[in-house]
């Protein structure tokens, strides 16, 4: 798709013109920054985040390096890449672990983001490291949500705690945690119903669950195809729940995934996992540098 042309191509076009001229002017840099801006916006990075980012990069780019370089495009890409990576978090961030097991992980996010699927995947991931997770089915709203989690649990031989869909999610979480302690499960993952960040009642429900189970991780599950609204969602969830991390889903698609940058920029919370498919083992630790290249279309 023409719109998704990689940034390096675009910058080559910008600087290709001045091969004869030989010298990079401040205007050339500005023109290049316009291309960077377009690339980021087309990748769904939030426009406010883009603005800040461009200003930061511009400062660096107008410095001597670019102006003197024979390959100004490369220098700019390097600056952009470094800035993006540092914004996204330099290194991989691991899951928190409680020194008094079980470690409690709570999933949260908008409808359809991939919470339940990720709950199953995370259990599998932990199992591989010889842990014994218990899954808690705290979504009483979505039709067959409990069944969905139970099927996933069966697939990987992991117990699922449920009180049906008539019980209160806070009570479900509380009793589930109790059972985990009794059965010596060292991890607990709570699947919650999808909800809008502006739904006060349901957001309060999450706060109550959090208050009750005191999780070590509150993970926001974010669909990597999300557009400009990602900042509103992430900011709001973070304000109300104090997230500890983010899981980015559906990265097996052809989205550039700029939401990742937006979410990181507004919450400051690390992206801990990348989900890359529907299968139960399609979950990987997140690496910020790879994401930077993807956003830039490289």
């Amino acid at each position: 798709m023409a719109a998704f042309e990689g940034l390096s191509n675009r910058l080559q076009n910008v600087f290709g013109k001045l091969k004869g001229k030989g010298k990079v002017s401040e205007n050339d840099v500005k023109e290049a920054m316009r291309e960077v801006r377009l690339a980021l916006l087309e990748a769904d990075v939030n426009f406010k985040v883009v603005k800040d980012f461009i200003n930061k990069v511009k400062e660096k780019a107008i410095g001597q390096e670019v102006m003197k370089s024979f390959t100004p495009g490369m220098v700019i890409i390097d600056i952009v890449n470094k800035e993006l990576t540092s914004l996204m978090g330099e290194t991989h961030s691991k899951l928190n672990k409680s020194n008094k097991p079980p470690t409690v992980i709570m999933m949260a996010g908008l409808q359809g983001a991939g919470k339940t699927t990720t709950t199953g995947k995370l259990a599998k991931y932990l199992q591989k490291q010889n842990h014994k997770p218990l899954l808690i089915a705290a979504d009483i709203y979505r039709p067959a949500a409990i069944k969905q989690l139970q099927i996933l649990g069966e697939q990987i031989d992991t117990p699922v705690f449920s009180l049906g869909d008539k019980a209160n999610p806070v009570e479900i979480a509380k009793q589930g945690l109790q059972q985990a302690k009794e059965n010596h499960n060292d991890y607990v993952i709570i699947d919650t119903a999808g909800r809008l960040h502006i739904d006060e009642d349901l957001m309060n429900e999450l706060k109550d669950i959090k208050e009750t189970v005191k999780p070590d991780e509150v993970l926001l599950v974010v669909d990597s195809m999300t557009g400009q609204d990602a900042v509103n969602v992430a900011e709001s969830f973070n304000q109300q729940l104090e997230l500890t991390g983010v899981v980015l889903t559906k990265l097996d698609g052809d989205t550039r995934g700029g939401a990742a940058l937006s979410v990181k920029a507004v919450t400051g919370k690390p992206i801990k996992f990348a989900a890359m498919g529907e299968k139960i083992d399609a979950l990987e630790p997140f690496y910020p540098d790879r994401m930077a290249s993807r956003i830039l279309g490289m």
Partner: peptide
């Protein structure tokens, strides 16, 4: 999904 960006 209305929350989807350019990928739609």
């Amino acid at each position: 999904d209305a929350t989807t960006g350019q990928n739609a």
